[in-house]
Write a protein that binds this DNA or RNA. Sequence first.
DNA 1: CCTAGGCCTTTAAA
DNA 2: ATTTAAAGGCCTA
Length: 420
Amino acid sequence: MAISGRISQWKKLPLTLTELCIDTTLQCGQSFRWRKINDEWICSLRGRVVVLKQDESCLHYKSMFPNVSPSPSKDIRDEDNTDKMLYHYFDLKHDLGALYEQWSKADPIFKKLAPQFGGVRILNQDAWEALICFICSSNNNISRISSMAHKLCKYYGAFITKIGDEEYHDFPTPEALTNPKVESHLRELGFGYRAQYIANTAKIVASKPPGWLNGLRNPESPAWGAKPALDSDSDAKPVTYKEAHGELISLSGVGPKVADCVCLMGLGWSESVPIDTHVWQIAQRDYKFGKTKTKTFTKATYDAVGDHFRELWGKQAGWAHSVLFTADLKAFAKAKDAAKEVMKVKKEAEEEEDEDGSVDSPAVKVEVKVEEEVTAVEEAPRGRSKRKRAATAVVKTEDALEAKREYTVRTRSQKKAKGQ
DNA sequence: CCTAGGCCTTTAAA
DNA sequence: ATTTAAAGGCCTA
């Protein structure tokens, strides 16, 4: 494989799946730039391309740097701080097992769901990247947000290296997005109304003093590469979560939810709980938040839900929230797959009957219960190979249906409330 | 303080 | 086939 930069060997970090599960953590909607290729995760990160894979006991990683290093003759090991970078990125100083125990103790609902979703961890992302990506997230879905994030890197980020035919670029700086043509270009690229938000926010941030955004960090969670303040200027009073949140809201395209995402995933405010439509649904369905006075979701409701979770889960409420959020996403995806699988089986059954030209097939045209259709498929095998295929489909479908039923039960109460 | 409507684009249902 | 709704919201009136 052709690589234009310098590549490190595989290294490893002892780490259990309870402490970190990259499969869930990297695709639960926190970060939008990781891509999975076979069993490896790959992403450009702070000037290098990082590849990750995980087994029972270790996180394996390697990194690729650009060729234009300060001293090309120097051994890569002297400057490769990827181990420390990942330790910071995954915030591994926290004992996740202990946190899960604490949250389970405080909340029976968490306790029930958590065992299936271990190793979900809040990433310590670059604040600027989080800010722009979550501006993109409004009224949007994960796959489209991801493609937008990649376009930003592709057109505005510094080139890092090429692997095969794929070029890797870093996430763009604010300055790189201040060009007057950015807004119209991003619109052409399909960003929609978010193009303006991004352009405006880039201008605002670029006009602030350097380090302004990271100045909103939780002091207990310093930025990557930040030098510990030597003799700190005593007039700089520490920022609070609420203050940081308020500052972010003043930016373009940033409301309470996006501000909380940046606080939690970019600025180290672990008590921040972003309330999006999913979390709001969880709050209504599982935490009795349905009977508020106002029907629509107001700022007051937003704060009330956040405060409730902060009281329930404590200091690291944002982390606990992400576990439940992940659980809901997975259940939702499973139910969706189930629906697809059912359609597929339907189609197969239909095709088989067409092949035979048999007439006794009322099941496919009439709206009936899916369970009955599955039975119909099972009883309809005629040739050997067809029988096998049908049997496999049934097995897969039963799992899928189970997931769908489970999700439906969980969401029923909410649908009822909506109907009134 | 609360509410309604509009906004870009894509996808899946209806 | 067209239309509607929803997808991890925000902004303006």
